[in-house]
Design a protein around this nucleic acid. Structure first.
Lengths: 218, 218
DNA sequence: AGACGTTTCAAACAATTGTTTTATGTGGGG
DNA sequence: CCCCACATAAAACAATTGTTTGAAACGTCT
């Protein structure tokens, strides 16, 4: 436990469990395959963790302790356009950066399709704050001319463009064969999604008070 | 077999299997629960279908025979703006229309996270043609000023906004509690996504020929 | 009614699952 | 040297899995 790099059986178990859970899901993942990949005995799971479920919790938690923050530290100083770009870029990094173990995103996609009790915790701790924050940025970009409903739609539009790349790898691979292979992919993609969304926001009509007095609402 | 409503054991099996597969995934779904819900004997699965896998294929297939086409029949006559709107609306209907059994989308979300051999077939038969088609519409909307790479990005932007509502129910429910409950939700949402994308496309610079001559492309 | 193909069912099968038990090794103080 | 807490390993356990079996029930002909 001297460095950040853990090599004990417990850590190897979590790493192997992450891969297997991501590939097959919770129930279909077998303890015997996990322990085989980790190079330890079958009983190790019940020794280091109470049972399979606790191993899963530990794995999910480990995956999100490693997740970097989506918001720039000097948020206040940046113009909202740059804050949006930073957010999109950080989010895409999680999904597409090949240096990140790819089972993080896979596990999350699974939780969406078949939520476990653990998901609620993650939502409250990490997703909701980020969502609130980006929603505020988008509201600022609209200059206060969007009402709550429209702001919800716009927020999901931005999030949707990003998480698409986490949850639809097979489709993307098949439709746009050279898309995922491009170098500096994350940079290009973040640039596009930001520009696309900014262009949309700037030219979207505000709350349909028909057409007059747009500027005086604030 | 006189009407469109099937009530035989085979049909009841498919219906029950759809729910169970959607809830638990292929491997975690048990034949005993499926047959219990369908009100038939355990052996019925191996009688009407060869095995569990063939039941799954039949279920997946059934879910997509029920899927309506995403393209308007009179496509040629409509302006591209309306073709986009129709596409978005039809796609959202699949995910959000409460009259549609909700396990259709769930099953698909699962296939994305853990593709089975069946997925490739679906991609080739139904996804790719639709994707090609909407990509063409978007290209037309851009007046031919987008290159292949940019067009890929724009297509995924539109698709991402739509499929977000299929694959992230727990998130949406938790962040935007009153969003999914709105009446005429599909109509409002389709309107937003269409307007958002159109506004973006109209104001996106074309292939970065830097900054001049934007207006003359049309 | 009797014979026959089809459908349904309860029971049993072998294989695999998560978990527990029991035994074996390992190091460090008394 | 022995004892003991800890770590690892092999084997066994009970429960559940998909699948098969063989007999009973059903309907339809001659």
């Amino acid at each position: 436990m001297s460095t950040t790099e853990e090599t004990g059986p417990r850590a190897r178990l979590i790493e192997a469990a992450g891969e297997v859970f991501a590939e097959h899901g919770f129930r279909a993942a077998t303890i015997r395959e996990i322990t085989r990949r980790a190079g330890v005995n079958v009983a190790a799971v019940n020794y280091y963790f109470r049972d399979k479920e606790e191993l899963y919790s530990a794995t999910l938690l480990h995956a999100h302790k490693a997740a970097c923050t989506l918001r720039p530290e000097d948020a206040g100083a940046l113009p909202p356009e740059d804050r949006l770009h930073h957010f999109v870029h950080a989010l895409l990094s999680r999904f597409l950066d090949p240096r990140r173990p790819r089972w993080h995103g896979q596990l999350m996609a699974r939780e969406m399709a078949e939520p476990t009790p653990m998901l609620r915790h993650l939502i409250d701790e990490v997703f909701r704050p980020n969502c609130r924050w980006i929603s505020g940025v988008l509201s600022e970009l609209g200059g206060g001319r969007f009402d709550a409903e429209q702001l919800d739609y716009i927020t999901t539009s931005v999030l949707g463009q990003c998480v698409f790349y986490r949850q639809n790898r097979p489709i993307i691979q098949s439709f746009f064969p050279d898309l995922l292979g491009r170098d500096a992919l994350v940079d290009r993609l973040a640039r596009h999604i930001t520009d696309f969304s900014l262009a949309a926001i700037r030219n979207l009509p505000g709350k349909s008070l028909h057409h007059e007095h747009l500027a005086e609402s604030r």
